[in-house]
Simulated assay, not measured.
Amino acid sequence: MARKRIAIDMDGVMADIVSHYIDWYAKRTGELVPVERLNGMPEPTGFPNGELIREFLHTPGFFRTAPVMPGSQEAVKALMEEYEVFIVSAAVEFPQSLSEKVEWLNEHFPFISWKNMVFCGLKTIVQADYMIDDYDKNLRYFNGERLLFSQPHNANYTEYNRFDNWEQIAAFFAKQAVPLAS
């Protein structure tokens, strides 16, 4: 029997991009933007200078230095024991991000093979049983089970199964496990 497949987004799911935006913004402007101010807002618009946020996305080192989402390393490693796991990230929109994302994954998730890293533009081509993502634009056209990872920009989404952290994701998949016949 083939193992079920999980497609996992990187930014906002494995990499804590929101706290990274906040930190980079504070370092460059001296203004600490509270995360609550970002609720329900597209990422750039919650900041007083949204253009600066867009600039970060094109700045060398931005994607490479993102913090790891708490609990993601342990949870992804455990999922890989039972599922076929692919990291699926939209990397071609910001060309320098491609190599930075590969380096980031190799450092923080060394147990993920390059064969399980998928970098693309649109994720509409992704075929899996489950997708964990923080964006409606990626989940909307996905044919498998859609798992929304909570982020401030998606606070108003109500049409998906929502998960606030990796512990909740791990618990969800623990319930999905089917015991092997003895």
Rank of each mutant, 00 (worst) to 15 (best):
Asn106Tyr: 00
Met80Val: 07
Lys123Ala: 08
Thr65Ser: 15
Ile125Thr: 14
Ile125Val: 10
Phe56Lys: 04
Ala75Ile: 05
Glu82Gln: 12
Phe56Trp: 02
Met41Asp: 00
Ser150Ala: 14
Ile132His: 13
Ser99Glu: 13
Lys77Val: 00
Trp114Thr: 10
Gln73Ile: 14
Leu105Arg: 02
Glu82Cys: 01
Asp134Tyr: 04
Trp104Tyr: 07
Phe109Asn: 00
Thr158Cys: 04
Met80Trp: 08
Pro95Phe: 11
Val76Ala: 05
Asp133Gln: 04
Phe163Thr: 01
Asn116Ile: 00
Cys120Trp: 05
Val118Ser: 01
Met131Leu: 15
Val118Arg: 08
Tyr141Asn: 15
Tyr135Lys: 14
Leu38Ile: 00
Val92Trp: 15
Trp114Ile: 09
Ala90Lys: 01
Pro70Trp: 03
Asn154Lys: 08
Gln96Cys: 06
Val68Leu: 15
Asn161Ser: 12
Phe119Leu: 15
Ile132Asn: 12
Arg54Ala: 07
Val85Thr: 07
Leu38Gly: 00
Cys120Leu: 15
Pro42Cys: 01
Phe119Glu: 04
Leu105Pro: 00
Asp134Thr: 01
Tyr141Ser: 15
Gly46Trp: 07
Pro67Ile: 02
Thr158Tyr: 01
Gln151His: 01
Gly71Glu: 01
Met117Asn: 14
Val88Asp: 07
Glu84Val: 05
Val88Ile: 14
Asp129Asn: 15
Pro42Tyr: 14
Asn156Phe: 11
Pro70Asp: 08
Ile112Glu: 03
Glu36Gln: 12
Phe62Lys: 05
Arg54His: 12
Pro42Trp: 09
Gly121Lys: 09
Arg37Tyr: 02
Phe56Gln: 08
Pro95Thr: 13
Asn143Glu: 15
Trp114Phe: 11
Thr124Asn: 15
Ala90His: 02
Gly71Met: 04
Phe149His: 03
Asn161Met: 11
Gly71Val: 03
Glu159Ile: 11
Glu43His: 10
Asn116Thr: 06
Leu148Cys: 10
Gln96Gly: 03
Asp133Gly: 03
Ile125Cys: 06
Asn161Lys: 14
Gly46Met: 05
Asn138Phe: 13
Gly144Lys: 04
Phe63Ser: 06
Pro48Gln: 06
Pro110Ile: 10
Ala90Ile: 01
Asp136Gln: 12
Val35Cys: 01
Gln127Ala: 14
Ala128Gln: 08
Ala91Phe: 06
Gln127Asn: 11
Leu147Ile: 14
Glu74Met: 07
Asn165Gln: 04
Thr65Asp: 15
Pro70Tyr: 02
Arg64His: 14
Glu82Lys: 10
Asp133Trp: 07
Glu107Met: 09
Arg146Val: 02
Ser99Gln: 09
Leu79Lys: 11
Leu122Arg: 11
Ile112Cys: 05
Phe111Cys: 06
Ala128Met: 08
Pro44Leu: 14
Gly40Cys: 07
Met117Tyr: 13
Asn143Val: 10
